[in-house]
Amino acid sequence: MGTILNPYISFRDTARAALEFYQSVFGGELDLRPFADFDFAKTGNPDDDNKVMHGHLRAPNGMNLMAADTPASMEWKGGTAISVTLSGDDKEEITGYWEKLSDGAKIGEQLAEAPWRDWFGMLTDKFGVDWMVNIAGPDTARK
């Protein structure tokens, strides 16, 4: 296997719900491991022990998304310093992802043809994760 770059998102209490939502968007297999499954990771707080220590969504097209909850005993830095980006030239597939991600989202820029002739949009999903979507236009499609 070559090197793979995977987004890994930290949540406070919503990793399970977020990953289940992303599974409904992208499909695939979801592996959720709570803190309670691992002796070394038990927090001593029953609420935290049931949260996700590690979650991994493997979509059928090779996309991976990972996430975890940050226990109450640790500092959590939610924020908008990073966006998850979906890019490609399959307009139908990516538009379908956009429509599903838009459920409960705050749309920053509606998915539409951009001045550079690609289709582009930005949103913050209902879990506070920023997404950028770019569909290659006819002059920029990479084969």
Results as ranks from 00 to 15, higher is better:
Ala41Lys: 07
Asn134Ala: 03
Glu99Thr: 02
Ala41Trp: 11
Asp31Phe: 13
Ala67Val: 05
Gly55Pro: 13
Gly108Ser: 03
Ala105Ile: 00
Ser10Cys: 10
Gly44Asp: 11
Asp89Arg: 07
Pro34Ser: 02
Asp89Gly: 10
Gly104Thr: 02
Val129Ala: 04
Phe40Ala: 09
Phe40Thr: 08
Met74His: 06
Asp47Leu: 12
Phe120Gly: 13
Gly78Tyr: 03
Asp39Arg: 08
Ser24Val: 11
Lys77Gln: 14
Gly27Thr: 11
Ala15Pro: 09
Phe35Gly: 12
Gly128Asp: 05
Ala72Glu: 11
Leu111His: 01
Arg117Cys: 09
Ala141Pro: 13
Val129Glu: 02
Lys100Phe: 00
Thr95Asn: 02
Asn50Gly: 15
Leu32His: 12
Thr70His: 07
Pro60Gly: 03
Asn61His: 14
Ala17Tyr: 11
Val84Pro: 00
Leu86Tyr: 01
Gly104Phe: 04
Phe120Cys: 10
Glu93Ile: 01
Asp139Ser: 08
Glu93His: 09
Gly55Ile: 04
Gly44Tyr: 10
Ala136Gly: 10
Glu99Asp: 04
Trp119Asp: 07
Trp76Phe: 15
Ala67Ser: 10
Phe21Val: 11
Asp90Thr: 04
Trp116Tyr: 15
Lys77Thr: 14
Gly2Asp: 12
Ile82Pro: 14
Leu65Gln: 04
Tyr22Gly: 12
Asp69Arg: 08
Val25Asp: 00
Arg58Phe: 15
Phe26Lys: 07
Trp116His: 14
Pro46Lys: 04
Glu29Cys: 12
Asp47Arg: 15
Gly88Glu: 09
Lys42Cys: 05
Arg58Ser: 15
Gln110Trp: 03
Glu29Gln: 15
Lys42Gln: 10
Lys42Arg: 14
Phe127Met: 02
Thr14Trp: 07
Asn45Arg: 09
Leu30Met: 08
Arg117Ala: 07
Gly62Trp: 00
Tyr22Ala: 14
Trp131Met: 01
Leu123Trp: 00
Phe21Lys: 13
Ala18Ile: 12
Glu113Pro: 02
Pro34His: 06
Asp103Val: 02
Asp139Trp: 05
Phe38Thr: 15
Ser73Pro: 02
Phe40Val: 05
Asn45Phe: 13
Phe26Ile: 03
Ala105Pro: 00
Pro7Met: 00
Asp37Ile: 07
Asp125Pro: 03
Thr95Pro: 03
Ala68Phe: 13
Ser102Ile: 00
Thr14Tyr: 08
Lys51Asp: 05
Gly27Phe: 11
Tyr8Glu: 14
Asn6Lys: 10
Ala17Phe: 08
Ala59Cys: 15
Ala36Leu: 09
Pro138Ile: 06
Asn61Asp: 12
Asp13Cys: 08
Phe127Val: 05
Arg12Leu: 12
Ala36Cys: 10
Thr85Tyr: 04
Asn6Tyr: 10
Thr85Ile: 12
Asp90Cys: 07
Gly88Trp: 06
Phe21Arg: 11
